[in-house]
């Protein structure tokens, strides 16, 4: 009996949210997933690390394990190669589900990779995902390349504002690396 007591004391109850899948892109299609695992079998990331497993992610969404999914660091390992989308025999767009989960995690938990915050701030400041140094802009002349246009920063800031991302980016926690746990 001591063993049982130990098990119960260490058990954690995960809250299930049955309506969770409706927050995903193409929620209806997700019901068609019968867990064949073709997505994971063809996934180049899964091949090198079992920490990232799209089949498991799809199942967890079906079960409504929202809290566990949104705090799962493995979400950030999808390279968007879209092999899973083209391979799925049921037409489930697995990579888009992962994208929805990432978006939701940013929105509800206010956490994102540091690199994403940097790229977003660069776009806000310059229109480009990188701040292109003056020296490189000048080098274009010697390379015979046309002048690099400046973007309309007012319009870009407005798009950040109307999509509610300006507030997020100013007040978001970041993490640098995803530690892979096998």
């Amino acid at each position: 009996m001591a063993g049982l007591k130990h098990i119960f004391e260490n058990a954690t109850v995960t809250r299930i949210n049955p309506r969770f899948r409706h927050e995903m892109a193409d929620a209806e299609k997700l019901l068609l997933c019968f867990q064949c695992g073709t997505c994971t079998a063809g996934c180049p990331v899964s091949r090198f690390s079992s920490f990232y497993n799209p089949r498991k992610i799809a199942r967890m969404v079906q079960l409504g394990l929202k809290d566990r999914l949104l705090s799962d660091a493995a979400l950030w390992l999808c390279t968007t190669c879209y092999t899973c989308i083209d391979n799925c025999p049921q037409g489930v767009e697995v990579a888009n589900i992962v994208r929805s989960l990432r978006n939701l995690s940013v929105k509800e938990r206010r956490v994102m990779p540091l690199i994403s915050k940097k790229l977003a701030l660069n776009i806000l400041r310059s229109g480009y995902a990188y701040i292109i140094p003056e020296s490189r802009i000048r080098r274009r002349i010697t390379q015979g390349l046309p002048h690099l246009p400046r973007s309309n920063l007012k319009q870009i800031a407005k798009l950040f504002e109307v999509t509610d991302f300006l507030g997020v980016i100013e007040n978001v926690e970041t993490f640098e690396k995803v530690e892979v746990k096998e």
């Binding site: 994208r99 977003a120 776009i123 229109g127 480009y128 002048h147 798009l159 109307v162 999509t163 991302f165």
Partner: peptide, 27 residues
């Protein structure tokens, strides 16, 4: 023809905000 005052295609933003990324692309 050079594209006037274009911005990032939006792809790097898609993972954190699909709507903003799509709006940047659409601009």
């Amino acid at each position: 023809v050079e594209m006037p005052d274009f911005n990032c295609c939006g792809y790097p933003i898609d993972l954190v905000n699909h709507e903003l990324a799509s709006a940047l692309a659409t601009r």
